[in-house]
Computed example of a mutant assay.
Amino acid sequence: MDIEFLALPTEPVAQIRDLGRDAYDLPVERHVSGGDGYPCRHCLEETPLGQDYLVLAHKPFETTNPYAETGPIFLCAESCARAEPSDKTPAILRAPEYLIRGYSADERIVYGTGKVVTTDQIAAYARALFERKDIAFVDIRSAANNCYQCRIRRAS
Rank of each mutant, 00 (worst) to 15 (best):
Y53L: 11
R154M: 02
V32I: 14
I73A: 08
Y24C: 09
A68Q: 05
L44V: 00
T118P: 03
G37W: 08
G35M: 02
N65L: 07
K88R: 14
C150R: 06
I73V: 15
T89L: 15
G112I: 03
R153S: 04
P27W: 05
A155N: 11
D18Q: 14
Q15D: 15
V110D: 00
T10W: 03
N146S: 10
P60A: 15
A126P: 04
T10Y: 10
S142P: 06
Y125R: 09
Y125F: 11
E46W: 07
L54N: 03
E11V: 12
Q51T: 13
V116W: 09
A95K: 15
D36W: 14
E11D: 15
V138N: 04
D106W: 02
Y125I: 01
F5H: 05
I100K: 00
E69P: 03
A91M: 11
I152E: 12
L56V: 11
D106M: 06
V28E: 04
D25G: 06
S33I: 04
T70V: 11
C43P: 06
C40H: 06
C40L: 05
A144Q: 13
L56S: 11
Y38C: 09
F137T: 00
T89R: 14
A105V: 03
P27M: 05
G114Y: 04
R17P: 10
G71T: 07
R21C: 07
L6R: 14
S86E: 09
R151A: 11
I16A: 14
F137R: 09
C147T: 04
A124L: 06
E29D: 10
R30A: 06
L56D: 12
D18F: 08
D139T: 06
R154G: 00
S33Q: 08
D36L: 14
R101V: 08
V110L: 01
D139R: 09
E62N: 14
L129F: 05
V13A: 15
E84C: 02
E46A: 13
Q121D: 07
D134R: 05
C80A: 12
T70Y: 03
C76T: 13
R82T: 02
Y103A: 01
C80T: 08
L6H: 15
G50I: 04
A81E: 15
R41T: 00
P9Q: 15
I109A: 08
G20S: 10
A81T: 15
D36T: 05
A23W: 04
F74Y: 15
P85R: 01
L93A: 08
S104G: 08
G20Y: 07
P85C: 01
E107K: 03
A83Y: 02
S86A: 12
R141F: 13
C147Y: 01
A57I: 05
F137V: 00
G102T: 02
L19A: 13
L44R: 12
T63S: 14
G34K: 15
N145L: 12
L93N: 10
T70A: 14
D52L: 12
D22G: 09
D139M: 09
G50P: 04
